[in-house]
Design a protein around this nucleic acid. Sequence first.
DNA 1: TCCCGTCTTTGCGCTGGCGCAAATTATCAC
DNA 2: GTGATAATTTGCGCCAGCGCAAAGACGGGA
Lengths: 232, 232
Amino acid sequence: MEISPKDLKQVVVFENATDDDLVLFLKNGITRSMEEGGYFFLQGDEASYLYILTGGQVKLTQSNPSGQLVNLRTIYPWQMFGALGAVRTDGATYPASAQALEDSTALAVPSLFMRSMMETRPYLSFELMKLMTSYIQEMQARYRELATEKVEQRVANALIRLAGQSGTKPGKEAGVELSFSRQDLAEMTGTTLYTVSRLLSDWERKGIIKTGREKIIVLKPHDLVRVVEGFA
Amino acid sequence: MEISPKDLKQVVVFENATDDDLVLFLKNGITRSMEEGGYFFLQGDEASYLYILTGGQVKLTQSNPSGQLVNLRTIYPWQMFGALGAVRTDGATYPASAQALEDSTALAVPSLFMRSMMETRPYLSFELMKLMTSYIQEMQARYRELATEKVEQRVANALIRLAGQSGTKPGKEAGVELSFSRQDLAEMTGTTLYTVSRLLSDWERKGIIKTGREKIIVLKPHDLVRVVEGFA
DNA sequence: TCCCGTCTTTGCGCTGGCGCAAATTATCAC
DNA sequence: GTGATAATTTGCGCCAGCGCAAAGACGGGA
């Protein structure tokens, strides 16, 4: 499947790009496919490329020395990832790993090329900076959440956020369907799969959600909001 | 005390700025003084200015709905703060509060002016972006730490980091002196002042640190590293 | 110098959440 | 269908860390 310049317009950072620039990106990028479970890059690899996901789904994780994982974010098509390295001028390394959650394809743009483009195109730096700004804010908010809220609220919040992002098909009987395992959710909220499982079971008993294998259907988002607000 | 363009060169983002540009920033900025305990801005205020600290010390905090605080970072002279708002084009608000830890002064640059400067000066966007990149990485690392390490390790780590940053006078008998209350440390590591107090007492008994009122002297940083690595 | 407000310490009891282990269930390949 | 594999649930015991309360230590101001 060929990528057209028009497709690239969907990338937030390229909103204001000229068609000529987009063509340049396409010419200088290479397409990489990755099967489910594979890694586009590993934490610590030299950050030679930034990626634009063109299909599939990718999860960014960071691990601590003992190998425990935290989930930083999930990438959907036409989002960039691995862009941090494009900025540092020295031989920077990726601070996270990027794993394909399903068979995925991405356009890999050399960091050096991106940097040279930015030098002469202020809109690029500016848009990229806007993106980074929103990441910072999000990370700060999540950090605060982790530091101050208890597990129940964090998990409820994660479900709400995910249900919001995923502009997915509201199933037959209303309710947003999410595809995440208990383990995934645990990594997103800084807890364990056991605790997540217990919470979900609990909420299912109360009719707030419906659960399945690697599947959670949010039936009453509003009740989750109440959990977040402390009326467990 | 007058600020000169030369002074501004110390600001990382202005490293590559021309003298003319620096003069422009000075002309368009206003000096604001704040006494200890005062706020340069509050979380939620409209982000009309970005600040460059010229003297004193400022702490950036974020609070959750119920008022519990987390400490995001401490700002030292010639560092920028409140810059996130300069990027968002709409009426953005500060995601954190900025409180003076001691009597402080800062140069307040209108966000609009900053934005207009960036439009024609790629180096500005680029440098600012480098800064943002490092923030993201730091926040990601702290997030992971909060999610995966236990309190003891987080506090030890915080002390190590602070001792590193604070290129302060190594006191008479060696050992880096830090000026933070137990409460401060608790807010930085997502725990409570009680737990911090207990840990510090413990470490003092072991001779790793020396404590005082709003004061911690790190005597054996290496032993703290061992705590972080899990050999409590 | 004394006083007062603030910061710090520590005992105590409690519980949220961890994590092993084992049972149960869902999914997929053949 | 039938296993084989992976995800999930749940009982159980345990302990790290919370947070109240009260006592103690410090330091600045008058």
